[in-house]
């Protein structure tokens, strides 16, 4: 069936099995920033924004996306003009292999959209479903706090 979504601000219709995982559909449609990690909702590598809230693409079926607004990290910024969160991640050295980074960024964006002045604990809570196996979390959390300060200015 045709699945109608707004992805990164563009209205599109995807031909998909409604019982397919949304993660599969997104990757097939070229949104390679959405990573397949555990495929069971634990690791956070496939985090996207669904109507503004961070959710797992691997735990959603394509049929559930009908009429929804989806955001992937492709919409966050460009290499020439990175989003403040992306810039902060670069400056804080909060990336090693980068596999978890798109999911981290989107969880962080959902947090800052809801709470522009998060505390350290708020950031930890917002990112608690995103696993990083390389850098640890200190620099990532610092980057999100730094970005929140820059966005408030």
């Amino acid at each position: 069936m045709d699945i109608h979504v707004n992805i990164n601000g563009q209205a599109v219709a995807w031909r998909a099995n409604p019982g397919e995982n949304l993660l599969d559909v997104l990757r097939r449609e070229g949104f390679a920033s959405v990573k397949r990690g555990c495929n069971q909702g634990d690791c956070g590598a496939c985090t996207i924004l669904v109507d503004g809230t961070a959710q797992r693409a691997c735990l959603l079926l394509a049929g559930q996306a009908e009429g929804r607004s989806l955001v992937t990290v492709e919409a966050l910024g460009t290499p020439a003009e990175p989003h403040v969160l992306q810039q902060a991640v670069v400056e804080h050295g909060a990336v090693q292999c980068g596999f978890c980074t798109p999911g981290m960024l989107l969880s962080a964006k959902a947090l800052l959209d809801e709470n522009p002045s998060p505390t350290y604990a708020d950031v930890c809570a917002a990112l608690d479903g995103n696993l990083c196996r390389c850098t640890g979390y200190k620099k990532i959390i610092e980057a999100v706090l730094d970005a929140s300060g820059r966005l408030r200015k």
Partner: peptide
């Protein structure tokens, strides 16, 4: 229940 993205769903 799980992590925040799980609770959002």
């Amino acid at each position: 229940v799980g992590s925040r993205p799980i609770r959002n769903a």
